[in-house]
Amino acid sequence: TTEYTFTDDEEARRAIEELKKRGLTFRYEKHGTTWRVRVD
């Protein structure tokens, strides 16, 4: 499991789109302004 942290909404959304394109399994949660994206 790899975890990424983003504080920029645009950056987080781009990363999420990219992961979807690659067909990877991931989860994300947003805490205030911080996004945590975990890739299995």
Rank of each mutant, 00 (worst) to 15 (best):
R14Q: 09
T2Y: 14
D9A: 12
F6W: 03
D40R: 08
V39H: 02
T33M: 09
G23N: 05
R36E: 06
T25V: 12
E3N: 05
D9P: 12
R27Y: 14
K21M: 08
H31I: 15
T34R: 05
F26R: 00
E10V: 10
V39T: 03
Y28L: 12
Y28G: 02
D8Y: 03
H31Q: 13
R38S: 14
D9E: 14
D9K: 08
Y4I: 06
T2R: 13
K21A: 11
D8S: 14
E29Y: 13
T7P: 03
T7W: 09
K30M: 05
L19Q: 00
T7Q: 09
E29T: 11
H31P: 01
Y28F: 11
R14P: 01
D40P: 08
A15G: 04
T5P: 01
K20R: 13
V39L: 07
E18S: 09
Y4G: 01
T1S: 11
R14L: 10
V37G: 00
L24A: 12
A12F: 15
D9N: 06
F26D: 00
L19P: 00
E10G: 10
D8P: 01
R22H: 08
R13D: 04
E10Y: 09
R14D: 06
T1G: 10
G23S: 03
T34P: 00
D9G: 08
T34H: 08
F6N: 00
E18M: 11
E17F: 09
T1W: 15
K21S: 09
A12C: 11
V37F: 09
E10N: 12
A12S: 02
E3G: 03
T25W: 12
E18A: 10
I16P: 00
W35Q: 02
E17M: 10
E17V: 07
R38P: 01
T34M: 10
T25E: 07
G32H: 03
W35D: 01
E17W: 11
E11C: 08
A12L: 14
T34G: 06
A12M: 13
R36G: 02
R27M: 11
D9R: 09
R14H: 09
V39N: 00
T34W: 07
T1N: 06
T7L: 08
I16N: 03
F26G: 02
T1H: 12
Y28S: 05
E10F: 09
R27S: 15
D9Q: 08
D8T: 13
E17S: 09
T33S: 13
L19R: 00
T34V: 14
L24F: 12
R36H: 15
R38I: 15
V37M: 03
G32E: 05
L24H: 07
D40N: 11
A15S: 04
A12E: 00
D40A: 10
T5F: 14
K20G: 05
R38D: 05
E11G: 05
K21Y: 06
Y28V: 15
F6A: 00
R36W: 15
R27P: 00
E17H: 09
T34N: 06
D9Y: 13
T2F: 13
F26Y: 08
F6R: 00
E29G: 04
V39Y: 03
H31E: 13
H31N: 13
K20A: 09
R13Y: 13
E3C: 12
W35E: 01
F6K: 00
I16L: 07
R27Q: 14
T33V: 08
E17G: 07
I16E: 01
R13L: 13
E17A: 12
G23Y: 03
R38Q: 15
F6I: 03
F6G: 02
F6E: 00
A12I: 04
T25F: 11
E11H: 08
D8M: 04
V39R: 00
R13T: 09
K30A: 03
H31G: 03
F26E: 00
E10T: 11
T7C: 05
D8K: 05
T25H: 13
F6M: 02
G32D: 06
F6L: 02
R27E: 12
G32M: 03
E10A: 11
E18L: 10
T25K: 13
H31F: 11
G32I: 02
G23L: 03
R27N: 09
R13K: 11
T25D: 06
V39P: 02
L24D: 04
K20T: 12
T25I: 12
E10I: 10
T7I: 07
R13G: 05
G32V: 02
T1F: 15
G23A: 04
A12Y: 06
T1A: 11
L19V: 03
T25P: 09
F6H: 01
Y28H: 03
H31L: 13
K21L: 10
T5Q: 06
G23P: 02
A12G: 04
A12K: 02
V37P: 02
H31M: 12
T5S: 06
E3H: 07
A15Q: 05
K30R: 10
R13I: 12
V37L: 08
W35H: 07
E10P: 03
V39F: 05
I16V: 04
T5N: 05
R13V: 07
T7Y: 14
D9W: 15
K30W: 04
L19N: 01
Y4Q: 03
E17R: 12
T1V: 14
R38N: 09
R22W: 09
F26S: 02
K20E: 11
A12Q: 01
K30L: 06
R36K: 14
D9H: 07
L19S: 01
T5I: 15
A12R: 02
I16Q: 01
R22F: 06
A15R: 04
T7K: 06
Y28I: 15
T1I: 14
V37D: 01
R13E: 09
V37H: 00
E10Q: 10
Y4D: 01
H31D: 14
D40G: 11
A15E: 04
T33R: 07
W35C: 05
H31S: 11
A15Y: 15
D8L: 04
T33A: 10
R38Y: 15
L19I: 06
T7D: 10
D40S: 11
T33G: 14
R14K: 12
E17K: 10
E18V: 09
F26P: 07
D8V: 05
K30D: 02
L24S: 05
R36S: 10
L24I: 12
D40E: 13
G32R: 02
E29D: 07
R14V: 09
R13W: 14
D9S: 08
T1K: 08
Y4F: 11
V37Q: 00
E3D: 06
E3A: 04
Y28Q: 03
A15T: 10
Y28N: 01
L19M: 07
T34A: 06
G23M: 03
R22V: 06
V37R: 00
T7E: 12
K21N: 09
L19T: 01
K30Q: 07
E18K: 07
D40Y: 15
G32S: 03
F26L: 07
D40H: 12
Y28M: 08
T7R: 06
T7S: 08
K21C: 11
T2H: 12
K20S: 09
R14S: 08
V37C: 03
T1Q: 11
F6Q: 00
T1D: 08
K30V: 09
E11R: 05
T25L: 09
Y28C: 13
D40W: 15
G23Q: 04
I16C: 05
T33F: 08
L24R: 05
R27F: 14
T2K: 11
E29V: 10
T5Y: 14
T2M: 13
T5G: 02
R38W: 15
K21V: 07
L24G: 03
F26N: 00
E10R: 10
Y28A: 14
K21E: 09
R27L: 08
T5E: 08
D40K: 08
T33L: 10
R22M: 13
E29S: 10
D9L: 08
L19Y: 06
T34S: 06
G23E: 03
V37Y: 01
E11Q: 11
T33P: 07
L24K: 07
G32F: 03
T33D: 14
E3V: 14
W35L: 04
G23W: 02
R13Q: 11
E11A: 12
E10L: 10
D8N: 14
E3S: 06
E29P: 00
L24W: 07
D40F: 15
R14N: 09
A15F: 15
T34L: 13
T25N: 11
T34I: 14
I16D: 00
L24M: 09
E3W: 15
Y4T: 03
